[in-house]
Design a protein around this nucleic acid. Structure first.
Ligand SMILES: [Mn+2]
Ligand SMILES: [Mn+2]
Ligand SMILES: [Zn+2]
Ligand SMILES: [Zn+2]
Lengths: 137, 137
DNA sequence: CTAGGATTTGGACTATGTCTAACTCTCAGA
DNA sequence: TCTGAGAGTTAGACATAGTCCAAATCCTAG
């Protein structure tokens, strides 16, 4: 249970070869302190909660930079927006289609067996398992 | 190996409680004759290839109607567009992130084991497995 | 200090998808 | 054969996520 603060965010960014600026630290802190799946818009709202200081362009620039550098991952479950996930370890997702809530399924006990061999000349980038659920009426 | 034509498209639509109009038949035929995963935009292009006869609004109206009626399913793998899938049987997907190609993985041999129990009051809507691959450079 | 590269910014722009009000088609009834 | 009401289609306005750009600002090496 690490306590995340702005200082170790800067370290984390440097460890991923990212120059830690004010805006980048705030955005990383929004994601890592909550350990939640956030949309770009939610990140923007959180970061600008007290006084607006980070533009939309910077939020998107930064999230894409974090993705490139492998600091976060994206989760594509909703056609209308991408979720950003501070947990880059192997795990899967449970998506509540009615509420829009997205939570982790730890992968410890999940086995996916019988996947066919990949076509030649291809390599796996990732395997996403999404369990879509809804509330029983 | 069914040969799809516009006549059995009309039958298929009726069997799914959909009134078969010209536009709906063309859109269904685009998907079922190809057995491919198409975006709304691709459907629009195919259907209007010879002479434009179907509007964007109708393409979207129709695809959403087909979804509601369970005639097709949607596949969410790309943050920028939805793919529509004429195969509603249980199966999974292989997504080539560099080319955008989306193909089926038949589910016969795939087993997903160890999924935790659902939280109470929830029921599964679907389980999506997406294998993301890229071409080795 | 200062200059130059890195970063951030507002706002224009693109693209997917939705909505609406008008128009057209179909077909049952007269 | 005519008619009109409901179903379906349409153009184009609208909403929204995300990208792009040129100008402004920030940082830091010298
Ligand atoms: Mn990492
Ligand atoms: Mn069916
Ligand atoms: Zn996650
Ligand atoms: Zn498929």
């Amino acid at each position: 249970m690490i306590q995340y603060n702005r200082d170790n965010m800067a370290e984390l960014l440097r460890a991923h070869d990212i120059n830690p600026t004010h805006q980048r630290i705030e955005i990383a802190y929004a994601l890592f302190s909550r350990q939640e799946h956030l949309s770009a818009d939610q990140v923007m709202t959180i970061v600008n909660d007290r006084h607006a200081e980070t533009s939309k362009a910077t939020v998107y620039n930064t999230l894409n930079l974090f993705l490139e550098k492998g600091l976060i991952r994206e989760v594509i479950v909703d056609p209308s927006k991408v979720f950003y996930d501070p947990n880059t370890g192997p795990h899967h997702h449970l998506y509540e289609v009615d509420s829009g809530r997205l939570t982790d399924i730890m992968m410890d006990d999940i086995r996916i067996e019988g996947l066919p061999d990949l076509p030649a000349g291809m390599e796996t980038v990732g395997i996403d398992l999404i369990v879509r659920v809804k509330h029983t009426t």
